Amino acid sequence: MLLGLEDVEQAAACEAAGAEQVTPAARQAGAAKRRANRGALPAHLPRIETTLDIDDKTCRCCQGALHRIGEDKSERLDIVPAQFRVLVTIRPKYACRQCEDGIVQALAPARLIEGGMPTETTIAQVLVSKYAPIASEALQRIAALYAIEKDIRGRSAEERRLVRQQKSRPLIDALEPWLRTKLGLISQKGKLAEAINYALSRWEGLTRFLDDGRIELDNNTVERSIRPITLNRKNALFAGSDGGAEHWATIASLIETCKLNDIDPLGYLTDVLTRIANGHPNRDIEALLPWAYQKQDLRAVA
């Protein structure tokens, strides 16, 4: 682009130097020729017209009224900046007035970037702006996989596996050679090539979900689970010692495991600590782990 601008500047300088040696009539004829050869912008583009008119329509010579005899019209290609908007997702929370069974709420919609603010359209716009058709088609292919996952969400592992074998596998089988073909058409130093190489180098792991209905298409569930720990990691810097940090990691692991098993962390820790204080044997410590935890049994012992 810099070389192109330099060529334009040199051409303009040469033209200006040559203009000093031509007559006014020749200069006017040359300008008319350039206007005639410029061509027209596409007719389907919207036009925003601005009229630059004179303030005084009185003849300076005789003070008579001036009348319109024509006009000069020029066009320039303009670009309107992209419009940004915020998509607000509202998820009402519900609770029962009669009991304390917990809060009921719709699941958060899946995001291409877990915890990220940009929508899929925004990401596509950023990618397409540099590698318009390849990135756009890649996102469309990935979106088709997510659409299948949406339809089978909540089904048994075997049902999910069967549907994936029938619908998702053909898409995956077509995606790999498509990625390899496109990889040969782009710069190997660009971000898009880096992303494609990353996916291809981990293809076995990325496609494992096809043969196991228990595996999710992405790791968003895990990302959501570790987010509280990630947000709280600065506090861990003040553990005081390596031993304190290990204790903090143990407690954090227990709390997050409780959440995965639908167990109230506070109630769990209270009951478990009570049982330990009452002489729970070390040889049976595994019975107190969250996945083996039975609240009513602990309360009875306590």
Rank of each mutant, 00 (worst) to 15 (best):
G240I: 05
E158G: 04
R299N: 09
C14R: 13
Q140Y: 07
V301S: 06
D151P: 04
Q105N: 09
G279M: 01
Y94S: 01
D218G: 11
V88C: 05
V88G: 05
A95F: 05
G102P: 07
I285N: 03
N220A: 15
L112S: 08
I113G: 07
F209N: 03
E223K: 10
E286N: 11
F209S: 03
G116T: 10
S168K: 00
A144C: 00
K259N: 07
Q125P: 00
C258N: 04
V88K: 12
D78A: 14
C14W: 10
R34I: 09
Q105P: 08
E256G: 06
G39D: 00
E176C: 06
R180T: 10
L192H: 03
R155P: 01
L237G: 08
R208P: 02
V86T: 15
A236W: 14
L231W: 07
E6F: 10
V128H: 09
A245R: 14
A40W: 10
Q98G: 08
T230Y: 05
G102H: 04
R85M: 08
R76A: 12
I152L: 09
V22W: 01
C62R: 05
D242F: 07
L66R: 05
V86L: 13
D101S: 15
L298H: 05
L139K: 04
I142S: 09
M1S: 13
A245T: 12
L217P: 10
C258H: 03
R164Y: 01
Y293G: 03
N232E: 12
I148P: 04
D264P: 06
G267P: 00
H280L: 00
A36Q: 14
L41T: 09
F209K: 00
G184W: 01
T207L: 03
I285Q: 02
D218Q: 04
W291Q: 13
C61S: 15
R34Q: 12
D53Q: 14
